[in-house]
Design a protein around this nucleic acid. Structure first.
Length: 906
RNA sequence: GCGCGGAUAGCUCAGUUGGUAGAGCACCUGGUUUACACCCAGGUUGUCGGGGGUUCGAGCCCCUCUCCGCGCACCA
């Protein structure tokens, strides 16, 4: 049965319906639209979303990341800026292709090769249209205020043109070339990957010590330590350090590779570390980058003994041929042992590079790939070095600069089907030669068709099979989403460069650095002014969240339980600047509780404000009329402090501070103190004018607080904005410019806050006293104050103090003579007695006061010792000394008063 | 090996020019007072990772060590 007084606002806040309702309304009203034609009086604020993989599903990292972006966007709107938050998804080459291949295998038992390239790509597009973009729906549920009318995909037709244009341009500039190089090969996904996609992973391996015979010298062997005996068939040399005296005479001789048996040269190379293993290295140029370089220097043969999928390719060793590389390892060791060439095996921990997507050790492999020599490196380095682009936390700047200073060419080709196909065609009759050429660059342009358009006579040309690294499209994201090739759209003019980029530090090289270079190269300008790197979310035990550990809560479950606002608020309050955060569902629960607290505070305002003539209802910001009480002035001043604190916190991107300030102001200052202090104003006998003024103050606080809170909790604030009629009808809170004039009247008496502090502090002391005597629940208690000498102003505040302490009355009585042992306490407004039948116990009271005195004495001594230190008085800052003196005076006074109180008990 | 973070109450974390250690949660006690039990009031809790130094004074600055995390290099 609903209480008739509260029927229009339910008792507990139910977020789901409210949140879905408002999101739909915002969409209907086109409230997220980024207006590229906004006048100059509305300065631009823009963010491009880090495009999630089109296969992606929302996880907590996304929630954190996108909540921050939404907060920034909503805050900018409240400041009257023209805001564009541009969303979209990434085609995610390997990930998406893998998903579709998996489905194909599962449901139709087919591989992509069974379908062929064209048919397979059709399937991928079908999958993308049907199932891709789940994450977009989830971002909407979170409340993200993206301009969905501008949603982009990295394989939109216009986006494809950008990628091709950039490829052609860089090729013509001589920065893109093709060459046979050692690359990181993923035997699982069967493609080359970039250095950044290799994850060094510590492994418990073995170090095998084996012997190669020295050719022509009976019974002479070199001992070699290796972790990869399975590649020995590809050995084409043995190397030692030229300064290693142990082996000096061997250089120039030959060693015998056991299988397939062959004599291979022993060479000298500086790269060899004499300290490692035996100081002798078997050189396998086809399967190790360092070996490849040694081979080049010593002119050694290159023998590839692996298939692309990691199986052994060595018909001369039938017992190994076709085996997986790790099976072959055991088998090779077995063979060596049977030949008497294996000396020992040691446990050994080393780092093995794993493929980021394939999750298997990569294989260094010599292959023909496209590479990019990065453009605009200097501009991109300087922009960050001199803080034109500000990275937060600052330490990532160093990481970035270090990478830029040691930048390596980027392997941009991938042996996949799903992606941007390399826009290069070979003349049909020369195709084989060109494809196998040692290198290929713009000097071969005559035999190539490198263009954004296919050749006019396609029958005479063959297109390159490779597609481009996904990041080769992502790096264009800030401008390629805003304008077409060869144009400067109004959107670009208004919103580029973007203001903030919010992303994880894990993609600083993959994405952030490359976007900066592309921005300078193609728009002659930095792509964003600020980069905010988010924290990494870990579980409560500090482990990374991962699917396999199953320790990653589904954000949608959390939203269902706590509401999107609760999730957002809870997460933001624990997300510190730049360090990892341990996720604890308790925090999200607090977020929900906070929403509920707000809900009920608004409900309370509705209840007490009903049917009050003259109570402010709606419209623009009326300053509270009538005589403001000290409590009114105090909360309004704290409201103004809140605005300042929030501004500072936002300026420094201290999102957890923002959350903390919002929480503390509302829960503690407003609800726990102000609302409790003014409850007398709503009693039937209260002065109607006083009541109206209090309601007006409550409205000012609530109205402004809803504005302040809106970026963190957009849905509930919008709901209450409407329910409380704080805006004109049809006006969204989200599009209402925040009020910035101080809420505190300019003629506010300066001592109001001090007086309120004194009252609140007194309330704390008296509550404490009641609790100590176990009468906390007793509402019939009367407090007596014999004298208000030091705080005569407090006389009028005693009813409020009584209210706050749950006492029946607090009376002044100069003739009051306490019986010895009457409980009493020292408050900022004087000594207060709590006379109660049956509670007079001189000894107990003496003991209690002595405890109190001991604490005061301790503080007193500290303060005194400080001031007795001549060095402090002479050398400390004057403010510090003044403060210390004031402290000492205050402790002295308290001590004396307590002593007097104790003395009176004798 | 080089570099960067972190170590503060049982837990998660604040602590911004060095000047009396904080919040929330948890826990304990009491409480349905005209919003809220997703609540209210009160209480307990710290050799601020170890050691050394600078200073009148160090959680904060310097050195060093230990542990955890991250990046880069090496990785036969």
């Amino acid at each position: 049965m609903p209480d008739p007084a509260t029927e229009d606002i339910s008792k507990a806040y139910e977020p789901t319906a409210v949140e879905e309702k408002w999101y739909a309304r915002w969409l209907d009203a086109n409230a997220f639209h980024g207006n590229e034609n906004a006048p100059d009086s509305q300065p631009p604020y823009s963010i491009v979303i880090p495009p999630p993989n089109v296969t992606g599903v929302l996880h907590l990292g996304h929630v954190l990341n996108n909540t921050i972006q939404d907060i920034l966007a909503r805050r900018a709107r409240q400041k009257g800026q023209a805001v564009l938050w541009l969303p979209g998804t990434d085609h995610a080459g390997i990930a998406t292709q893998a998903v579709v291949e998996r489905e194909l295998k599962k449901h139709e038992k087919l591989t992509r090769h069974d379908l062929g390239r064209e048919k397979f790509l059709e399937r991928v597009w079908e999958w993308k249209d049907e199932k891709g973009g789940t994450i977009i729906k989830q971002l909407k549920r979170l409340g993200c205020s993206c301009d969905w009318s501008r949603e982009r995909f990295t394989m939109d037709p216009e986006y494809i043109k950008w990628v091709q244009h950039v490829f052609v341009d860089l090729f013509e500039k001589g920065l893109i070339y093709r060459g046979k190089r050692m690359v990181n090969w993923c035997p699982k996904t069967l493609t080359a990957i970039s250095d950044e996609e290799v994850i060094p992973t510590p492994q418990k391996s073995k170090l095998y010590y084996m012997r190669y015979a020295v050719a022509g010298e009976a019974n002479r062997f070199v001992e070699i330590a290796t972790t990869r005996p399975e590649t020995l068939m590809g050995d084409t040399g043995v190397a030692v350090n030229p300064n290693d005296k142990r082996y000096g005479d061997l250089v120039g001789k030959k060693a015998v590779r056991p299988f397939p048996e062959a004599e291979i040269p022993i060479v000298a190379d500086d790269h060899i570390d004499p300290e490692f293993g035996t100081g002798v290295l078997k050189v396998t140029p086809a399967h190790d980058k360092a070996d490849y370089d040694i081979g080049l220097r010593a002119n050694l043969e290159v023998i590839d003994v692996l298939h692309p999928d990691g199986r052994i390719n060595c018909p001369d060793c039938p017992d190994l041929d076709g085996l997986d590389r790790f099976e072959a390892r055991d088998k090779a060791v077995e063979k060596l042992e049977s030949m008497g060439l294996l000396d020992k095996i040691e446990d050994y921990e080393n780092n093995v590079g794993f493929s980021e997507r394939g999750h298997v050790p990569i294989e260094p492999r010599l292959s023909m790939q496209w590479f990019l020599k990065y453009p605009s490196v200097k501009e991109a380095t300087n922009a960050v070095a001199n803080n034109d682009i500000v990275m937060r936390p600052d330490r990532w700047r160093k990481t970035y600069l270090h990478w830029m200073e040691n930048i390596q060419d980027w392997c941009i080709s991938r042996q996949l089907w799903w992606g941007h196909r390399v826009p290069v065609w070979y003349q049909k009759d020369k195709a084989e030669d060109l494809k196998n050429a040692e290198s290929l660059d713009s000097s071969h342009a005559a035999d190539l068709h490198v263009s954004t358009d296919p050749p006019a006579d396609p029958e005479n040309w063959v297109q390159d099979d490779d597609v481009l690294d996904t990041w080769f499209s992502s790096w264009l994201w800030p401008f390629a989403t805003m304008t077409n090739v060869g144009e400067r759209s109004d959107t670009l003019k208004k919103f580029y460069p973007t203001t903030d980029l919010v992303t994880g530090p894990d993609i600083i090289f993959f994405w952030v650095a490359r976007m900066i270079m592309a921005g300078f190269e193609y728009e002659k300008e930095l792509p964003f002014k600020n980069v905010f790197f988010t924290a990494l979310i870990r579980d409560i035990q500090g482990r990374k969240m991962s699917k396999s550990l199953g320790n990653s809560p589904d954000p949608l479950d959390l939203i269902a339980k706590y509401g999107a606002d609760g999730l957002r608020f809870g997460l933001m309050r624990i997300a510190p600047l730049g360090t990892d955060v341990r996720f604890d569902e308790k925090q999200i629960e607090e977020g929900r509780n906070f929403a509920n607290k707000l809900w009920n505070a608004a409900r309370y305002r509705q209840m007490v404000g009903r049917d009050v003539p003259g109570a402010p209802q709606s419209g623009d910001d009326p300053s509270p009329a009538g005589d403001l009480s000290i409590y009114d002035l105090d909360i309004l001043a704290k409201l103004d402090d809140l605005a300042d604190n929030l501004e500072t916190a936002y300026t420094n991107y201290r999102f957890n501070d923002v959350g903390q300030h919002l929480y503390e102001f509302f829960w503690s200052n407003y609800c726990d103190w102000y609302l409790e202090a003014v409850k007398n104003d709503f009693k039937p006998e209260a002065d109607p004018n006083r009541k109206a003024t209090t309601l007006a103050v409550m409205d000012t606080v609530l109205r402004r607080f809803l504005q302040h809170l809106h970026p963190y909790m957009p849905h509930i604030t919008e709901e209450l904005w409407e329910k409380m009629s704080y805006g004109a009808s049809d006006d969204f809170l989200m599009l209402t410019s925040a009020e910035t004039t101080p809420a505190t009247p300019t003629d506010a008496p300066a001592n109001a806050r001090e007086h309120v502090d004194a009252v609140y502090q007194s309330a704390r002391v008296l509550r404490n006293l009641k609790a100590e005597y176990n009468v906390a629940a007793n509402k019939n208690i009367r407090f007596i104050i014999p004298a208000l000498d030091s705080a005569p102003w407090a006389e009028t505040e005693l009813p409020t103090l009584a209210l706050l302490t749950g006492a029946k009355e607090i009376a002044t009585d100069s003739s009051f003579e306490a019986d010895k042992g009457t409980p009493s306490a020292l408050t900022p407004i004087g000594q207060v007695f709590m006379p109660l039948e049956g509670l007079i116990d001189v000894e107990a009271e003496k003991k209690r006061l002595n405890n109190e005195l001991a604490k005061v004495e301790k503080e007193f001594s500290k303060a005194q010792a400080k001031l007795e230190n001549p060095n402090f008085v002479e050398r400390a800052k004057p403010e510090a000394v003044d403060k210390a003196r004031a402290d000492l005076a205050s402790w002295t006074e308290k001590r004396d008063q307590l002593n007097a109180m104790i003395a009176s008990l004798h």
